[in-house]
Amino acid sequence: MSLCGHTSPVESLAFDSAEVFVLAGSSTGGIKLWDLEETKMVRGLTGHRSNCTALEFHPFGEFFVSGSMDTNLKVWDIRKKGCIHTYKGHTRGISTIRFTPDGRWVVSGGFDNVVKVNLESYHHLC
C-alpha cells in the first residue's frame, strides 16, 4: 500500500491507537490524515510555517498534536478539521512530542535542549 499526495518530503508519522488513521507531516509544514482501511486521504491541514517534525495522536480523544521547526506546538481537532490551540515556548524547533499515558498532558522536546510540559488538561476535549 502507498499513501501518495505529499509534494515535499515526509518528516514525521503517527498512528492512532486503533490503527485506523495515520498522520504524515511534511518538510513544508503540511499534515495529511490518512484512513488506512479506505486507503485514502481524509484531510490535509496547514498551519506550521516550516518542517512538521513531530506528531502524536491523543490516546483516547479525536485530536492530535504536532510540533515544528517553527517552534510551535499545535493541537488539532479532527472533528472540527483544524487547529484549536497553538503553544509557544521553545526557542528552537520541536523534535519530539508525547502525551502522558492517561492523555492528560502533552510533553515536547526541542532542539533548544529543553523539555516543556504543557499542564493544560486535555480530558475536556475527549
Rank of each mutant, 00 (worst) to 15 (best):
M1C: 05
S2G: 02
S2V: 13
L3W: 03
H6D: 04
S8F: 07
S8Q: 06
S8V: 01
P9M: 03
A14D: 05
A14W: 02
D16Q: 08
S17F: 11
S17Y: 10
A18H: 09
V20M: 08
V20R: 14
V20L: 13
L23H: 06
A24D: 06
G25D: 04
S27A: 15
G30P: 00
I31T: 01
I31G: 03
K32T: 00
W34P: 00
D35P: 02
D35I: 07
E38G: 11
G44M: 05
L45I: 11
L45N: 01
L45K: 00
R49P: 00
S50W: 00
S50A: 11
S50T: 01
N51T: 05
N51G: 03
C52W: 02
A54S: 13
H58K: 07
P59T: 00
P59G: 04
P59E: 01
E62F: 04
F64H: 01
V65K: 04
S66G: 06
N72K: 13
K74Y: 01
K80F: 10
K81L: 05
G82V: 10
G82H: 13
C83I: 10
C83G: 04
I84Y: 08
H85Y: 11
T86C: 09
Y87W: 10
K88L: 08
H90K: 10
I94L: 10
I94S: 09
I97K: 01
I97E: 05
T100I: 14
P101W: 13
D102T: 15
G103V: 12
V106T: 09
V106S: 12
S108I: 11
N113H: 13
L119N: 15
